[in-house]
């Protein structure tokens, strides 16, 4: 493994300031300022330092409210930090919970197209990958329908397929294995093997320690917004690029299906 750092977080802190009497109206803030002056600050992250090298798989574990998703959102550039620095190198794709913000009135192909555009892909590239995404999501029967007509499972499959088809070096997954049915999870695992095979860098947040130990080289344990422990693991899936286990034969992912990832360093994704 080379030592190129893909993510560097140094002393990251993040707090959220909530009003005791919340109001989102300008008139309230102008007319009853005293009432809306009372705030409570929640410290979501406290002096978090984390490094991820190229090709590493890092897990973030912890109870609810420990700051896992906030940390992932900061790494993704979706949230600003209060203090500390975050440096993220190379193109990135992320999958947060359910879906990728698909427009409910658009069909699968249109949503894939928009998602690809926002990740800096060319229309030709998107068109090439669209069939692969629909294949993975098994959505040919619903391909012409708006995504609001899809079941939750279909929606998730489509979102996950679109996320992993983005040519990136770094993938961020938030609780991806906690949602969806068994068949969805089997598909996710099959894709994870492909990502490992191609030495992609992954940061995944999860509650299942056994699952994280299965995939990750290192796990950061978080509590109350701080990293309390760093666990080195020996993942079950090798990263040697030679043997992709095939116990999920029905969802075997060929290395060719990740061909786009090879050009990841050439085309940077748009950053917020």
């Amino acid at each position: 493994m080379n030592n190129e750092l893909i993510i560097e977080c140094k002393g990251v802190s993040k707090s959220f300031r909530h009003a005791v009497y919340p109001s989102k109206l300008l008139q309230d803030h102008l007319l009853s300022r005293k009432r809306h002056r009372r705030h409570q600050t929640i410290q979501a992250l406290q002096d978090v330092t984390l490094h991820v090298e190229r090709g590493e798989w890092v897990g973030i574990a912890g109870p609810n409210g420990s700051g896992k998703t906030t940390l992932l959102q900061i790494i993704a550039g979706l949230l600003p930090t209060d203090t500390g620095t975050v440096i993220q190198r190379g193109p990135m794709a992320c999958f947060f919970g359910l879906g990728l913000g698909f427009h409910p009135e658009r069909n699968a192909v249109e949503n894939i197209y928009h998602h690809g555009l926002l990740h800096g892909m060319t229309p030709e590239e998107i068109k090439k990958r669209t069939k692969r995404i629909i294949d993975f999501a098994e959505l040919w029967s619903h391909v012409d329908l708006p995504v609001k007509c899809y079941s939750t499972g279909m929606h998730m499959r489509l979102a996950f397929a679109a996320a992993v088809q983005v040519p990136a070096q770094l993938y961020l997954f938030d609780e991806v294995l906690a949602v969806g049915d068994v068949s969805f999870q089997v598909k996710c695992r099959a894709h994870f093997k492909g990502l490992r095979y191609h030495k992609k860098t992954v940061v995944m947040v999860g509650h299942s320690l056994s699952e994280l130990r299965h995939w990750c080289d290192r796990i950061y344990h978080m509590e109350n917004g701080s990293i309390v422990d760093i666990e080195q693991c020996t993942p079950a899936i090798p990263r040697n690029g030679k043997s992709v286990p095939s116990q999920h034969a029905s969802h075997h992912v060929s290395p060719q299906s990740f061909e786009g990832a090879q050009r990841s360093s050439e085309q940077p994704a748009l950053r917020a």
């Binding site: 990135m92 919970g97 698909f102 748009l270």
Partner: peptide, 15 residues
């Protein structure tokens, strides 16, 4: 209107 995509995908919002 674009709440979903703003919450999930990092890209320049000016777009």
């Amino acid at each position: 209107h674009k709440e979903g995509v703003i919450q999930k995908v990092p890209f320049p919002r000016l777009i």
